[in-house]
């Protein structure tokens, strides 16, 4: 029988079962820990670092670090929110995130995270303005890596759920980007029904389904009235209707 124990998140007592990550225990208790690379149904990888918390004073990613009995976890403290703000700001500066003209606007987790963390204006970081290709070769799907934040959700979904390995990282360092298993998307076996293509999988507007852009009116989009939090994540606009 799994051993149950408790620990604290920002002073609140939270229950956990042996083997739970901090995030699993927090989710079960209704405590939101901000995240971008982690989403329901995918194996956590702890790469975006937005979910980093302090466990007994040590920085760890909440999505991969097991909860420890009687530990004290700092989540939405001023210090940690500051780190998250800087991480998210750097994501904006690293890619080409033009929210006003992006069809993911209003359902984009990066944008919603920016709002949640109070990022309302440009920052001191330089915009890298990378030149990345748009792959619109597939009849139903577009890959616009200008908007990619390297969360790897599409890679894990294609590999672990769809069993296809359509997406993978290519290149190194600053030249790293999401590539496809073929010269172009049209040459892969990706399909609209794949979990990797589900609009809830890509947290931004990197993977989009053709002909669905701007179908959700302003005011009825996922994050128009509610901040990103537990149970309020990106969903397919058609499913939301």
């Amino acid at each position: 029988m799994s051993k149950e124990f408790t620990f604290e998140i920002d002073g609140r007592l939270v229950k956990a079962v042996q083997g739970d990550t901090i995030m699993q225990a927090a989710d079960a208790a209704g405590v939101y820990i901000p995240r971008l690379c982690d989403t329901e149904g995918l194996e956590p990888q702890g790469s975006c670092r937005v979910c980093v918390v302090k466990q007994n004073g040590r920085s760890v990613s909440a999505c991969t670090q097991p909860a420890i009995a009687d530990s004290k976890v700092e989540n939405e403290t001023e210090e940690i929110q500051g780190y998250r703000r800087n991480l998210v700001r750097m994501l904006y500066h690293e890619g080409n995130h033009l929210c006003p003209i992006c069809e993911a606007s209003g359902r984009c987790e990066l944008q919603a995270m920016g709002y949640r963390l109070g990022i309302t204006q440009a920052t001191k970081y330089p915009y890298l303005q990378p030149v990345r290709p748009v792959d619109a070769s597939h009849p139903d799907i577009v890959l616009d890596t200008n908007r990619c934040i390297f969360c790897g959700r599409c890679i894990r979904a294609s590999r672990d759920i769809d069993g296809k390995h359509v997406f993978e990282y290519v290149g190194r360092g600053i030249h790293k980007r999401v590539g496809v298993n073929g010269d172009r998307l049209a040459q892969t076996n990706v399909e609209l029904t794949d979990r990797a293509i589900d609009l809830a999988t890509c947290p931004v507007g990197c993977i989009i389904q053709k002909g669905k852009g701007f179908f959700a009116p302003i005011g009825q989009r996922q994050f128009d009235h509610k901040p990103i939090s537990l149970g309020v994540a990106a969903v397919d606009p058609e499913e939301a209707e």
């Binding site: 006003p100 003209i101 069809e103 748009v134 577009v142 053709k210 852009g213 701007f214």
Partner: peptide
């Protein structure tokens, strides 16, 4: 050029 056609009404209004 290169942008997707359904984005155009939103982009050019800028």
């Amino acid at each position: 050029l290169g942008r997707l056609y359904w984005e155009v009404p939103v982009i050019v209004q800028r």
